[in-house]
Amino acid sequence: MSWFAVDDNADTHPKIIAAKNAAVGLWMRAGSYASQHLTDGIVPGVIAKMYGSKAQITKLVEVGLWHEHGHTCPRPKCQQPAPGDYYMHDYLEYNPARAEVTARRERAAAKKRDYRERQQAPGAQGGRRPQQPAYDEQPLPDPAPPTSAARPIPADWQPSAEDVETAQLARADAGLPQLTAQQLDQVTRKFVRRQLDDQRVAPAWGGRWQQWAENERTELAAPGGVVVPLQQPTRSQQQVAGLDRLRERLNGGSAS
């Protein structure tokens, strides 16, 4: 593929301004034609009349963008067109000649041929790959191994002694009371039920259970349905309890 070059100052060139947009459109199309067909700037008359009007052709000749047969342009590269044809002024000043484009294409084609021959030569490194079987004849690859051993939690899952110790230490650091064996059992049953209800899967459950036990601050039921609070009574609750005890002592003393 070749290109028709247009100077980046063409929009303000006096000849472009004088020709006006309609004639400049013809000039652009003819330039593209000349570049594609490697005419070295010659615009056949039949192409000029097919792409533009007689007035547009006349305007391009008048402003000096095109030359007719018999022109006297002093530019050495401005060729003399045949009668009825036109030549684009200074075409070869900015665009490659047919011989140059052809030679460049031949060099590129020769490089490709040489590369293919070297790649296909016997014993050449990186040569032609052995012929592969047809798509429907190729064996199916072995299924990829699972990326993890994630699985649902067993219904009878229990934390390890290390899990329990880690959770209890974390609770102590946070100022929370230690969980009794019965409370640990309640926490574990609640944890397992929640994982099963949410249909969660994981390779291991110890770490998740530790976080659950560390953050467990709800009231856990003791045997017989008695609720055992895990949080310490507030200061106001302690004060009320102290006043009650003082009142009982005073009442007991007056009775004696």
Rank of each mutant, 00 (worst) to 15 (best):
R193M: 12
G123V: 12
Q178N: 10
Q131F: 05
R151C: 03
A149I: 11
L169R: 13
P159F: 04
P122H: 08
I153A: 04
D173Q: 15
T218S: 11
L140T: 11
R129I: 06
G206K: 02
R129Y: 06
Q211F: 06
V201H: 02
P145S: 08
G126Y: 09
P146Q: 13
Q132R: 15
T147F: 03
A155W: 09
V187F: 02
G206Y: 01
V201N: 00
A124H: 13
V187A: 15
P146V: 02
A134W: 11
R217M: 12
W157F: 07
Y135A: 15
L176T: 01
Q178W: 08
P152T: 09
P130Q: 14
E219Y: 04
I153W: 05
G123R: 14
W205M: 01
A170F: 05
E214H: 08
Q178T: 12
P143V: 11
D142V: 12
D197Y: 09
D173T: 12
A121C: 05
W205T: 00
V192D: 01
G127T: 08
T218Y: 05
P141E: 13
D156I: 07
G206L: 02
A202Y: 00
G175F: 04
D185W: 09
E137M: 14
G126D: 09
P177W: 00
T218M: 06
R118S: 06
F191N: 00
A149W: 09
Q120K: 13
P130R: 15
Q132P: 03
T188A: 15
G207A: 13
Q131Y: 03
G126V: 10
D185G: 10
E219Q: 08
L169W: 03
L184S: 00
P146I: 05
Q168L: 07
W209F: 15
A181L: 10
D163C: 07
G127Q: 12
A144M: 14
L176Q: 02
Q199E: 15
P141H: 14
A134L: 15
R200K: 14
R193G: 10
E214L: 06
K190I: 05
T218G: 10
P122A: 12
P159K: 04
R171A: 07
T188V: 12
Q158Y: 04
R208Y: 15
W205C: 01
A172I: 05
V187Y: 02
R200N: 07
P154M: 00
A155F: 07
Q131N: 04
R217H: 05
W212N: 08
P130I: 10
Q178I: 04
P159H: 04
Q183L: 06
Q195N: 09
D185H: 14
R194D: 04
L196N: 05
V192F: 13
P139Y: 00
D163N: 14
R217T: 15
L184C: 02
D142L: 15
Q158V: 10
G207L: 05
R194L: 09
T147S: 14
P141K: 15
D163I: 03
A155C: 07
R217P: 01
W212K: 02
E137H: 12
N215G: 10
L196K: 10
D197N: 06
D142P: 11
Q168R: 09
L179A: 08
A181C: 04
Q158K: 11
T218N: 06
L169M: 10
D185Y: 12
P154A: 06
A149Y: 13
W212S: 09
E137L: 13
A204K: 08
E165F: 07
A213Y: 00
W212F: 15
